[in-house]
């Protein structure tokens, strides 16, 4: 089926070639950003470290690209890919990781607390399963205000074993909220193989018991991710309530940068990297179907490298927050000058 148009080829319904180029560019940007940031974390440049999302790019970009710009995403402790997919500027994200004043949150949040409400990222956070609750609130707001926005709440396979996640799922089901419940199952809850602590056949199967559509999705295939999220978003906007999606994905790095890994084999990592890499799969799909040329791929990689290099320079050169502002944003009552009413 020789064609230069992915739309005609039925590659991804509803997406133009230019959009597919952008999807891949976003994934490559995340890959380069995370690998670079991971290296910087090893060197001690990122206070408190970080949780690299390398390997999970297709989930984030597939979700973000299936949503409208004003839809809401709430992330997890491992969320740089969500933030970049939601179009937060890489330089501001890296500056936030550094704790610099120019960061997305003025350097106050760091790696685990990225947010930009204008871009629809309603925060990432380190409380396991809590992002779903924030997304639930966003969905409730959209429902009450009749804005036809959709919210996506992310959590991991570890979060799927917390009680709050299922309380949120239940509320979303009974209130028929425009919520997409999105589990990134990367097989490991920190150092614990999740299958060793997770009862039942699958996480998605649990959700089905709450009376909402629930399915497992190949999280290493951006086309599948996009298709599933677009369908769920359409349902939500039509007033048909929440959908549960369990994305089967994998993180190539440890739980945190530099983690000494003792809980999985090198073979397993190699197998995921070589047979299911989301960036390589999508690159191959786009080049084989004639949407992209090898030159396009080179340009995408070069552009990502340039953006990330500029982000590093920006983060390195940005100033630290002014110490006199340390008490700001601590509570609703604190003054600009740091004194407390």
């Amino acid at each position: 089926m020789p064609t230069t148009n992915g739309l005609d080829a039925g590659l991804v319904p509803g997406a133009t070639d230019a959009e597919l180029y952008d999807w891949l560019a976003d994934m490559v940007l995340i890959r380069v950003f995370e690998e670079t940031a991971d290296g910087l974390a090893l060197r001690g440049r990122i206070p408190g470290g970080m949780h690299p999302a390398i390997g999970q790019e297709a989930v984030a970009v597939g979700i973000a690209r299936a949503l409208r710009a004003d839809d809401v995403v709430a992330g997890t402790h491992r969320s740089h890919h969500h933030a970049l997919a939601k179009q937060l500027p890489p330089a501001a994200v890296l500056a936030e990781l550094y704790g610099k004043a120019t960061g997305t949150n003025g350097g106050r949040g760091g790696s685990m607390h990225l947010a930009d409400f204008d871009l629809g990222l309603w925060g990432t956070n380190g409380i396991v399963g809590a992002g779903l609750g924030i997304a639930l609130g966003a969905a409730l707001g959209a429902s009450v205000r009749c804005t036809d926005q959709v919210a996506v709440g992310l959590f991991g396979d570890g979060g799927a074993n917390t009680g709050r996640v299922w309380e949120f799922v239940n509320l979303a089901a009974i209130w028929r909220l425009p919520l997409i419940v999105a589990c990134e199952n990367n097989l490991y809850a920190v150092e614990t193989a999740s299958k060793s602590v997770t009862g039942g056949n699958s996480i998605a199967e649990r959700a089905a018991a709450f009376g909402m559509p629930a399915q497992q999705v190949d999280g290493q295939d951006i086309v599948e991710v996009h298709r599933a999220v677009r369908a769920a978003a359409d349902r939500a906007r039509a007033g048909d309530g929440p959908t549960f999606l369990e994305f089967l994905t994998y993180r190539y790095k440890g739980h945190n940068s530099g983690e000494v890994i003792r809980y999985r084999t090198e073979d397993e990592v190699t197998q995921w990297r070589t047979s299911r890499d989301p960036v390589e799969r999508f690159s191959a799909l786009l080049t084989n179907s004639g949407v992209l040329t090898p030159e396009d791929l080179t340009r995408i990689a070069d552009d990502a490298r340039a953006v990330v290099d500029a982000a590093v320079a920006f983060a390195e050169e940005s100033p630290w927050p002014d110490p006199s502002t340390a008490a700001e944003n601590v509570s609703a009552w604190s003054n600009r000058d740091g004194s407390v009413r």
Binding site: E35, D38, L42, R43, G254, G258, T265, E268, V269, D309
Partner: peptide, 21 residues
């Protein structure tokens, strides 16, 4: 300043110890 890990070596440093790339 981690110059070696930024521009010089592209996408190379792997934080995963043991199993990794």
């Amino acid at each position: 300043r981690a110059q070696g890990g930024i521009g010089g070596i592209p996408v190379l440093v792997d934080g995963a110890v043991g199993p990794g790339s």
